[in-house]
Design a protein around this nucleic acid. Sequence first.
RNA 1: GAGGUAAAUCGCCUUGUCGCUUCUAUGUUUGAAACAUUUCAGCAUAGGGGAGGAAAGUCCGAACACCAUAGUGCACCAUAGUGGUUAAUAACCACCAACCGUAAGGUUAGGAAUAGUGCAACAGAAAGAAUGUACAGGUCAUGCUGUAGUGAAAUCGGGUAAACUCUAUGGGGUGAAAUGCCAUGUAAACCAGUGCUCGAGGGUUGCACGCUCAAUGCUGGAGGGUAGGCAGCUAAAGUGUUUUGGUAACAACACACUCAGAUAAAUGACAAGGGCUCUGCUGAAGAGAACAGAAUUCGGCUUACAGAUUUACCUUAAAA
RNA 2: GCGCACGUGGCGGAAUUGGUAGACGCGCUGGCUUGAGGGGCCAGUAUCCGUUUAGGAUGUGGAAGUUCGAAUCUUCUCGUGCGCA
Length: 165
Amino acid sequence: MTFIIRYPMTHDADGLLYSRGYHQILISIFVVLTQLMAYTFPKKEKLKSKTLIEQLFLEGKSVSAFPLRLVYLETPLKMDVQMQIGVSVSKRHFKKAVDRNRIKRLIREVYRLHKTDYFNNITTQCALMILYIGKDKPTYSLIETKMKQLMANFLKNYSEHKRVP
RNA sequence: GAGGUAAAUCGCCUUGUCGCUUCUAUGUUUGAAACAUUUCAGCAUAGGGGAGGAAAGUCCGAACACCAUAGUGCACCAUAGUGGUUAAUAACCACCAACCGUAAGGUUAGGAAUAGUGCAACAGAAAGAAUGUACAGGUCAUGCUGUAGUGAAAUCGGGUAAACUCUAUGGGGUGAAAUGCCAUGUAAACCAGUGCUCGAGGGUUGCACGCUCAAUGCUGGAGGGUAGGCAGCUAAAGUGUUUUGGUAACAACACACUCAGAUAAAUGACAAGGGCUCUGCUGAAGAGAACAGAAUUCGGCUUACAGAUUUACCUUAAAA
RNA sequence: GCGCACGUGGCGGAAUUGGUAGACGCGCUGGCUUGAGGGGCCAGUAUCCGUUUAGGAUGUGGAAGUUCGAAUCUUCUCGUGCGCA
């Protein structure tokens, strides 16, 4: 699994079909499929339930990598997915809806492109909420690097928490 | 050429890769219902659509929904030259008047102060009651007339109605968290008070009336539960073009077109190229790109806005 | 989405039938008192121009308007806060 995902985007899947045997054809199809699945962010992975969000802020734990902050909670979800995630930007720091939209879109985009790097080792279902707590408008690259830190912190906390009980 | 006035239009584009949302079609060894074969949901593939001129402020006006099809009186609110346009308005158009500008043009909360009540600090003899001082004129004399001084205003039919008010006209209230339906769940339990056709209490407009519902009720205490989904939700006072009528706002006919529908809330990210502006003699290169994000839907108004384009008109210098 | 309030020196907060803006409290600055500190008493304290004197101009979130005169009335606008299943 890890071997497959570590590969970058390949466009020579058609070539593989003809050159390899039947067994390898199946594998190559699987590769294409998983890669298509990987960089998506469909509706059922979005955190939408009002009650769940309330519960998350009440009982959830948080890690942060400025200007990002992650609140998470292990809980069973209604949908058949590993994660449900929401994004939020404070109206206090960004008065204009255009700026808030922009930041939320950037965060979602970064999450979409990198989520497979993080969540291979996670077994239980989680609800997440990412908050932007900075006061300045960010760039794509900043969010990208900070997201990596954030997720590293998260995984560390998560695994420690798993080990204790 | 320079400066200005008025009106109108646009508000980056193209390609590639990866996504989001919605609709349609096809497929489906997925799930549920149903049990002669379809329906719904999911997934996959293909194709179509996917923010603005202000989407903003919520300042007016409607549509639509519910409350007696919208009742009576009072209170309250709005409008205010004349005529027209419109579904309607405080909007728009034309004309008149006043003021501003050399001009093109612009601005105007533009009814009534002789219906009445009120208000005017300081200064001033006096502030709406009546008159005082000085000088001059006038008279037989007084009353009277003018000037001076204070002040924004001194008897002028004074000012003020964005003071109350009066006149004319209009206005019922609430506002998609409206409203209708489905699903889930508990406690139709407990304690205190009150009430059941001689009516507690609720609804209806701020008040009074009227109307209407009303007993498994209402008020308080302590506590328990649900806060999901569907409709409303986008084909309309719709958009574009031509012609005709009208000074114009606008109207009528014809033809063509279908143009977001989300709900912790889609409309995006990255890369490359081009156009534009600035720096630069040119090139290379570098930098920059406004205001701003649909939330039931329309018509206006107001405010924000880099830059670009077009049309008409006004003033004025120089040269030919 | 809809509705309703409030903006006055550094801070809180007066002044509203339109008539000298900054009462009062807190804070800050200077002086006196004390060996020193604290406390107390006295004076000052919006901004700018002025010999820093006399005085003048601008100031109630901002911009217009009505009025002789506006913190107060009217319109637009900016900001802050609150409520509504």
